[in-house]
Design a protein around this nucleic acid. Sequence first.
DNA 1: ATCTGTGGCGCG
DNA 2: AAAGCGCGCCACAGAT
Length: 580
Amino acid sequence: MGMLITRTEDLYHILPELEKMDLVAVDTETTGLDPHLNQVILFQIGTPTKQFLVDTRRASLEPLRPFLEGPKPKVLHNAKFDYKMIRGTFGIKMENLIDTMILEQVLTSGAQERGFGLKDLAAQYLNIEMDKSERSSFMAHTGDFTEAQLDYAVRDIIHTYQILLKQVPKIVQQGLEHTAKLECLVIPAFGDMEFDGFFLDTEKWNQLIKISEIERDKAKAELDRIFKATRKSDNLFGWVDINYDSDEQLKKALADLGIHVEDTSRETLMGIKHEVKDWLLIYREHQKVLSTYGESFLKHIHPKTGRIHCDFKQLGAESGRVSCTNPNLQNIKAESEFRSAFVAPPGRKIITCDYSGCELRIIAELSEDPVFLKTFHEGGDLHAIVASTMFNKPVSKTENPELRKQAKFINFGLAYGMGAQGLATLVGCSEKEAEKLLNQYFKTYPKIKKFLDTAAKKALKEGYSETIGGRKRYYDISQIHSNPRERAAIERKAKNAPIQGTNADMTKLALVYIREEFKKRNLDALLVNTVHDEIVVESAEEIAEEVGKLVHDCMVKAGKYYLTKVPVEVEYEVAEFWKK
DNA sequence: ATCTGTGGCGCG
DNA sequence: AAAGCGCGCCACAGAT
């Protein structure tokens, strides 16, 4: 049973004991899930042999600030949550966190869909059935904590600690030390990004919505006009009551026009030779905007901070990439101004930074193709150079541009394990011709072919792919002999995984560096978003240029950590709003 | 009334 | 005909 602490001054007395521990487990119980609206009411810290429970309604954690912000390793389960709650309640930004949930995701990437809760891991590693029913009792709790609550609180940190001890040898055994360390180091960066949020200009957003509404309604009126002719006796007043958002209804309606389609995807619609096509595409575009980026998006503005606080899933993708929800800030429309509605508040600036040509550089690094490497070192139009070497013809953006385009499709398609069929639809040629193109490509660039083939072969043989940073993505290879489709799918994933995953390695390390620098220099600058090869920062106006250079340098440094054969280039722009 | 799967589409 | 990689959100449609 842990020791309950209810007075701030008592925390000074436990510090020497905490310092003696090589590793401490930490957990919190809170009044809710929102770090801006709810508080930590119980703070737990300790080891399996000694635990302290701090009633933070009565005692402040301030005496522990240097310890929590210091180098002592702290293990938590889902550390980002406690990080944000502790930052929200006490303004303390914990450092040197280890997260058993993140570690489990690193250990099983691709092999396990879910089951990363503390309860799941306790069952798996400790053979213990945890009863989590006590957790909700803290939400509206007043008065002294019950014995059951304190018991529960103690068990959480003991189990977390013990799980970590079991995970560590597995990490070493699987060669995941670097990835595990990286993922743990970057946790506070995601905590800060979520806590600080991204400011959105509501008025500007509303204007964009209005424009889309007008355009959509116009398109809808035109569609009604077109379809009205086909349904004279539909109803009394001649209304057209087709729901254009329903694929079934749309297919039927199109059939009445003599247009028969298998599906209603944009690609299929584009093939229609009837004015209905244009209006449908316009309708679709604006309807998409209004549903995904419409008024519903504004409900994510926090009532207290006035900013948007999304939820990053640090290992959201099996490749190691981050994903983002509630709302997803990684798929905001790049064109048509929606991005620029994410603005800097008065007196501040937004700095948008991204790795240029990141995936192609990684391909160059991994394949060691001489032409790719040379082009990145000396500068030049890679797509044009690839095309001219493939076809033995001069190619540039003006000379034989169609060949450049073909090379560009192949260059990007490579990273997806694209085949002849995919290339054919992209280029608009026959599958035979696409096959010839690919053959020519790989004949000219044998090292790239070798890299892709090796990546696929390794996955089938070893059951995993690997990034430059040693991040692994596991596959179920039990079916590959009986199921050629499954096998092909793994091959494609394996061609992509080292590329996409190394990009994730780089961007995450950059986030670590950037946060470190902001802290070290005490800069009035915030991380506000990250989108795979891009990092967005908000800072005070006066230092924006300096911050831009700093972020640039951090991203280059992180890139160079992984890419040693190819130069790393980062672009940044200082503006009133999110660019690109 | 609420859940789940699917088609479609926004981003890198 | 389940696919060129990785995601999340929306509306619809069918099921509970």
